[in-house]
Design a protein around this nucleic acid. Structure first.
Length: 346
DNA sequence: AATACGGGGTT
DNA sequence: AACCCAGTATT
């Protein structure tokens, strides 16, 4: 076995963090943990992992659940399509595999929401198969160890890293190997301020030797961020207010929000009144700007204004797909963090 | 190949 | 403000 691998495995044995999903080889639970942890730090995902295994102890429980509940349990974590894909995959596992998680990499990879990383994670952690988990941590670790200056975000370079890993993982315990490599990347070979002084393979690290720790890994793409101006209508009638399900292909698909008017810039109350639907353009209604919240997403900066509209009489909302709720009942619906922030102010 | 998809954390 | 996180699906 490669000396680098030996050192990393040894370091892991002595320094690993305890994590709940490391206590099990149940493919279903491994899968839940991986879906929760995609693009998410362990500290942020852990509570959601517990929520999912408690509400859905088996894949059949998940398959039989209402999608609304699956989304609700993911509320606040983001990437809500992952909850929908998780639910879809559970149904497939029950219908096509009799509720028994498939063991074959290619079959696992076909399931919605499972890509190359997650399929490898399930194969190795649950079944101890030799599929390297090439996540952000491992990309960074390998590129530094071997001073690889290929952009890690370009698909065509993936095979270069996989070839290295497929050789390193030979004759090791795959479960241990993947845990050890990801752990070292997450805790020592960090993106910023890596802890090279305590790194078990700093002597072998080419990037360190060549003074390239700060420039490796290389990433080429710059993400584009756009501004959006969202006007949320907090329409009240007595102690009731109204929410609506977002069905369009956009952020927060299938979650519930206050009814919303998007504008091309931030607008004042006069402009808002002009944009209001006829049913609430009653002069007896009072309208006030209650809150402004700037909400940051990866690709969007949302400038949200929350307008309270107090209705004097109950209009006919039948055709507007509005759902009447109160300060308690809205909590049964999955709502985005931004809306939750506002409603918690009430 | 490039972009969208949430939200939180660090520097 | 820039970058990253146990990435995947869509365009």
């Amino acid at each position: 076995m490669n000396q680098i691998v030996l050192e990393i495995l040894e370091y892991y044995k002595n320094n690993k963090r305890e994590m709940p999903w490391r206590q099990t080889t149940d493919a279903y639970k491994i899968w839940l943990s991986e879906v929760v942890l995609q693009q998410t730090q362990v500290i942020q995902g852990t509570a959601y992992y517990y929520k999912f295994i408690e509400n859905f102890p088996t894949v059949a429980h998940l398959a039989n659940a209402n999608e609304e509940l699956v989304l609700k349990l993911r509320q606040g974590l983001g990437y809500y399509s992952r909850a929908r894909n998780l639910h879809k995959a559970a149904k497939i596992i029950v219908s096509d595999y009799k509720g028994i998680f498939p063991k074959d990499y290619k079959l696992i990879l076909k399931l919605p929401g499972i890509g190359e990383y997650t399929a490898a994670a399930i194969c190795s952690f649950a079944f101890n198969q030799a599929y390297p988990t090439l996540d952000g941590n491992v990309f960074r670790l390998i590129s530094r160890l071997y001073a690889v200056e290929l952009p890690i975000n370009e698909q065509k370079n993936r095979s270069f890293f996989m070839e290295i890993l497929n050789n390193l993982i030979l004759n090791t315990n795959p479960r241990l190997f993947n845990n050890a490599f990801m752990e070292l990347g997450a805790t020592v070979c960090k993106s910023q301020n890596p802890n090279c002084n305590i790194c078990p393979v700093s002597i072998q690290c080419m990037a360190l030797k060549e003074g390239k720790i700060k420039i490796i890994p290389i990433k080429t793409n710059k993400i584009k961020v756009r501004n959006r101006y969202l006007n949320f209508l907090h329409i009240t009638y007595g102690n009731k207010f109204y929410i609506t399900k977002r069905i369009q292909k956009d952020i927060w698909q299938n979650l519930y929000t206050l009814p919303l008017i998007e504008s091309t810039q931030g607008i004042d109350i006069k402009s808002l009144i002009l944009m209001l639907p006829e049913v609430i353009k009653n002069k007896k209604n009072t309208i006030d700007l209650k809150s402004e919240i700037k909400h940051l997403l990866t690709h969007q900066v949302i400038f949200a204004k929350f307008w309270e509209i107090k209705l004097e009489q109950l209009p006919d909302f039948e055709s507007n797909n509005l759902i009447e709720v109160d300060i308690n009942s809205y909590k049964n619906f999955a709502i985005p963090k931004l809306i939750d922030k506002y409603l918690l102010l009430l």
